[in-house]
Design a protein around this nucleic acid. Structure first.
Lengths: 177, 177
DNA sequence: ATAATTATTTGACAAATGTCAACTCAGGCT
DNA sequence: AGCCTGAGTTGACATTTGTCAAATAATTAT
């Protein structure tokens, strides 16, 4: 799907930076403008924000996935999101300036970006449907299917929040009612 | 924001078709591939799908708004969505082939498209947040604020479904408990 | 205008999940 | 080994919303 030409690909790849960070490292703190779109090569990251003094886990990125503060990255506004690793991790990041500059200079990169955003939009809608119509139980089972091993790597509190239920409810789901 | 150059703008505008359709007209039926991205100039349209034999209203487009079956339009897959007008309406539509061709030929159009999709993604996330954390009451009040007059134009069943509650619950919210 | 149809409201009750508090358990420290 | 601390579990109860059935109100067709 939408492979870049060799030249564009080389430039695109060169724009990515790499970081090796320890567990519990913050890649983004709320109220700051998010400069990077990340890809996690090894490790896990948790994206969360505060609502009524509680932490809401909006996303859990296991290795092999992209993540970012969409609003902040694209609109250049202060983020409400925090991004924190849960394990020592190897992450790649591409700066907004670089990505936007390359997209402006190179039509192919712009197309790639548009496709990435479109994919995210479709996933976002699927998740909304899931939250609205599936029971907590179903969401939990689906999560285990799609992300086996997540239980060994992410505390249940975060998983519960990500699923949109309380820790207690998740605990009851797990114990089989 | 991202104005097109005069030439691109003229071509872009020329690509839109116009239809004057009666109330209850289907602009899209489920299982068919959606060819058009729409803008409603006058009237109202309702986007809905079937789930467990019930109709779920996914979106209500009052005049002045864009709407489409995102997945079907961009991925060229059969849509699960139906789109139906609720009033006699004046709608504009741009065919997927035309939009994609223009985006491929013209970098500016591609950028415009990317920005449109990005905006949608941000709105999608806001709606998810709303469904997950606001009470039905809050969502209802917000809807009235953002779309005054909707009550006079859209049956409550559809509004209830759009808000993610049953008709009975909406009725109770309205009666003030 | 009247009857038929459709939209909305209301009531009684059930299901899912949240809240708060107490309890248990495992791993890391001393 | 014994103690702490944080994570996870369990119980009792409250709250929100859903479900089903019936009653009204509004709209449309004849």
């Amino acid at each position: 799907m939408s492979p870049l030409s060799p030249g564009a690909m080389a430039a695109f790849k060169a724009a990515w930076q790499v970081w090796q960070v320890p567990a519990h490292h913050f890649l983004l703190r709320e109220k700051s403008v998010s400069d990077y779109l990340y890809f996690i090569e090894e490790g896990v990251a948790r994206i969360f924000y505060h609502k009524h003094d509680k932490q809401i886990t909006e996303w859990i990125a296991l290795d092999g996935n992209f993540f970012l503060s969409i609003t902040s990255y694209f609109e250049r506004t202060p983020s409400k999101l925090n991004i924190q690793t849960l394990e020592p991790s190897l992450v790649y990041g591409i700066h907004n300036h670089d990505f936007m500059r390359m997209a402006a200079e190179n039509h192919e990169v712009e197309t790639l970006l548009r496709r990435m955003v479109t994919r995210s939009l479709i996933m976002s809608q699927e998740r909304m449907d899931s939250i609205q119509f599936e029971s907590a139980q179903q969401r939990y089972e689906k999560l285990l299917e799609n992300s086996p091993g997540i239980l060994q790597r992410v505390p249940l509190t975060y998983i519960a929040s990500f699923l949109g239920v309380t820790l207690e409810t998740l605990s009851r789901i797990r114990s089989g009612k």
